[in-house]
Design a protein around this nucleic acid. Structure first.
Lengths: 196, 196, 196, 196
DNA sequence: AATGAATGAGAATTCATTCAT
DNA sequence: TATGAATGAATTCTCATTCAT
């Protein structure tokens, strides 16, 4: 992809993130995204197959970066305990830095339209897999106690997700500060990580 | 409300639950609900103000029963530990008994349309409040250790929600069996409940 | 028609007059008429074939009485001059006594729906004919000067109609008082009636 | 407004005039106007807010031109007598040249829907005002005798309106020919204009 | 590539009319 | 006769998508 083309592509994706976050996928007209991106309605269709494609691309692009960032952050960690904390912190940090992404994630994670669900499930599953890897490794190294890795991941992700959900709903922008430690403490208990 | 009227009201609500679960709120036409309920399109509007009102009524009706059932189940419990287990079990049981409700809950919990969000937030907040009450009482009675009740609720609900979400996505109908104990064990760790 | 049946028939017609006057024919739902008449929606259809039939019956019934009253009033008149004044006064009096009828007349006189026009034209033509008779007789008896009776009727009726139209639009209920003489004076000039 | 845009705007207005004249406002579907204008249904809404807006725009546009034409025609007149005749002739001429407009005017002048009435009243009042000005000036210059200008206008306009109404109802297209003089003669009598 | 006017399929909702009670 | 719940045809308007410029 050429440089200016790529720029416009991302401009549209940025605009869509904002617009979907504000109005929701179905309530948001394509023309709104176009206006926000500073392009004509028709231009959208030079970059995306249709409205659904915008959502899917958006999700996979943003979620891809998101996961990459998480990955990058945990490679430096020595222990499972550190990795868990690292994921919590990086997850929160990224959501906080991009509130619109957080909103879109919250919203679109649960679309029932089967086509959209399918398209979205890829990146999400990747994240789940990453978390499960960390947990499985911890179990193997006896750094955590966890009878069932999947349930562990569900608790871990579910907790982060619920925290973000509340944060997104409330209008207080600072609410995530200091939450990391609280969450981590709960996880430590759940995973039987000794205080040490 | 007279008997037959009430019956039709619930028939429509049931149909809407199925239809929304299958197609999603926006993708599901009112006529689909009507057909499923065995009534004419226009009849819907004798019972509900508009499509949104169906969703809101549905959620508040179903969520109302849901919470009531949870309440009923925990009054018999002696300890916080029992209450926590009870909520897990009743939550799962009800979702399992009414998969469509589970789907709709998953979907609509995250609607971004502000009007819908607002309407839906009531019953949900009530459930959150209920959970927080149980946790707060446990802290007070020193039956659990929990530095922050809100985070505790987020973890608790988030975990249940994530489990349901996975269950709903997968098509295995038995997947929830035996999950209660696994979840409870994690919670016990997180809340520092001694093994007894 | 039996007594109670006739009563209900007129109750519906009265209600329709009010309702059409307030909302207009198309904007007024049949159910509004029913409620105003104190009967069930379905009952309307025991007395009238359909909504249009209500309008037509209403117009022909009311206009029939209207014309009859005009007729009754002019039989006592000796001269054309008196008859003309009599029509003006009786026309205004009746409109004033039944403002809703005035409104409905104003509105429905000009419906473009061909079916309705046709149905309404009967009674109206009868009134036109009556006026033209009076004028023709006046010409014959040389009590008035009028080269063309039809134009004379158009002017005469058009004037009354325009006055009523203004009166109906304005909210002042007394605006018709004293108008009779002014109108009559204009007519006297137009018809070259000597001051005598 | 650009050239082609303006053209389409007027094409729709022309089509609406025809369609409303034939079917009446309520009985005429927007799709009928679209078909007549040779555009897609949706296109209508690029030029007008909604159906009502078409009617209102139509009326104000057409009535605006109508009044302007009347104004233009009377500036050349020397006396009130001439002005009165001029209005009669120009009024008739324009209606005759645009029968659909005449029909629509007849119809919509009497809409009872309050919103429509309000929107329509503007241009109509302007015409009334113009007539009253001519009459008042005539009184002042002692060219006519008229105790009440408003009643005079009501008679004048009411007469023209009734003539047009009859002409529109009848299907004879030539019926307005020669009517001007007859009407003018009546007015001359009513306003006590000497034969000179 | 970019535009944005035009398209027309689609959907929610209304309401005159029917009919079982 | 009277009811009023139920019907479903009909209609306005929206908006994703296309295509001539």
């Amino acid at each position: 992809m050429s440089k200016p083309r790529e720029e416009k592509y991302h401009a549209i994706l940025d605009a869509a993130t904002e617009a979907f976050a504000e109005y929701g996928y179905y309530t948001c007209q394509v023309s709104k995204i176009a206006k926000l991106a500073g392009v004509a309605d028709g231009t959208i269709y030079l970059y995306f197959k249709n409205k659904e494609d915008i959502l899917v691309s958006l999700f996979s692009d943003r979620m891809g970066r998101f996961i990459q960032e998480i990955r990058r952050s945990i490679v430096q960690c020595q222990t499972t305990q550190e990795r868990i904390f690292c994921i919590i912190r990086t997850h929160f940090k990224q959501m906080q830095e991009n509130r619109s992404l957080a909103v879109v994630t919250q919203i679109e994670l649960r679309q029932s339209d089967p086509k959209i669900r399918e398209a979205i499930s890829g990146p999400l599953r990747e994240y789940f897999h990453l978390i499960e890897q960390v947990l499985a490794e911890g179990v193997e190294k006896q750094e955590i106690v966890l009878p069932d890795v999947k349930i562990g991941r569900q608790m871990f992700f579910g907790t982060l997700d619920a925290v973000i959900s509340d944060w997104v709903s409330s209008k207080k922008p600072r609410a995530l500060e200091g939450t990391e430690d609280l969450v981590f403490n709960l996880m430590r208990g759940a995973f039987k990580i000794s205080e040490a």
